[in-house]
């Protein structure tokens, strides 16, 4: 089954990037029948408006699949913030980064975030899992960070290990998340703003995307 019609549809509705990946190896038993992951990205910071747009795109994708007789499971963009429902139990079984790398939209950088060649880490993601037999896109299997270590040296909490991600070594720890979280909670206590984001700001791929935007403006 071709992915082009669905991709064109979602791009027209406001998605920045859409990819379809074969996510079979990343699935646990509960969702093993949904072996295609549709990664949808929007080039905006994660705010209420972006979440709304992404959720809308997910619903559109789900509807598109439904009329063609396929199942889908929507993993919302803010899956970690949604609780208190049964379906949220399944969200943590799958992460957006997996769908994105499986559909070749980027790799996982030394900062532990998904990096897209064009937009860097300045994307917000949502995932639709489906059993539609799509021909998957070519996956990304290796990091393209190379020798760049800007995020590692600039991280204020020294949380980044500086390892290169590879699909063959998925268990390798790239980020000491407890250190990262500790800094964020300290900052929240100080000025009520948890955000750090140095590892995004210094990343050449992310900077490239903002520079391009400023030229256009």
């Amino acid at each position: 089954m071709e992915t082009e019609p669905l991709k064109r549809f979602l791009l027209r509705e406001g998605a920045t990037l859409v990819g379809v990946g074969d996510v079979t190896p990343a699935l646990s038993a509960e969702i093993s029948h949904l072996n295609r992951g549709i990664a949808i990205a929007v080039n905006r910071s994660l705010g209420a408006e972006t979440v709304e747009l992404l959720s809308g795109l997910q619903d559109l994708a789900s509807g598109w699949l439904k009329v063609r007789g396929f199942r889908s499971l929507l993993i919302p963009p803010d899956s970690d913030r949604r609780k208190a429902k049964y379906i949220t139990k399944l969200y943590k079984l799958f992460c957006h980064k997996t769908a994105a790398t499986c559909s070749g939209l980027g790799w996982i950088g030394k900062n532990g975030l998904l990096i897209n060649r064009q937009y860097g880490s300045k994307l917000s993601w949502a995932t639709v899992l489906t059993n539609a037999p799509f021909v998957p896109d070519e996956p990304t299997s290796e990091s393209e960070c190379g020798t760049c270590e800007l995020c590692v040296t600039h991280c204020p909490s020294q949380a980044l290990e500086g390892h290169l991600w590879s699909v063959r070594d998925p268990l390798r720890v790239l980020v000491q998340y407890d250190k990262c979280r500790a800094l964020k909670s300290r900052r929240t206590a100080l000025d009520e703003r948890p955000n750090c984001g140095f590892c995004i700001t210094v990343c050449p791929y992310s900077r490239k995307s903002s520079r391009r935007k400023s030229i256009r403006q």
Binding site: E30, I31, H33, L34, R71, L73, K85, Y86, I87, K89, L90
Partner: peptide, 14 residues
């Protein structure tokens, strides 16, 4: 139906 559907049905029931 599979597990995801069951859970969504459970949410609807609640």
């Amino acid at each position: 139906y599979f597990v995801p559907e069951i859970l969504m049905c459970a949410d609807a029931l609640y």
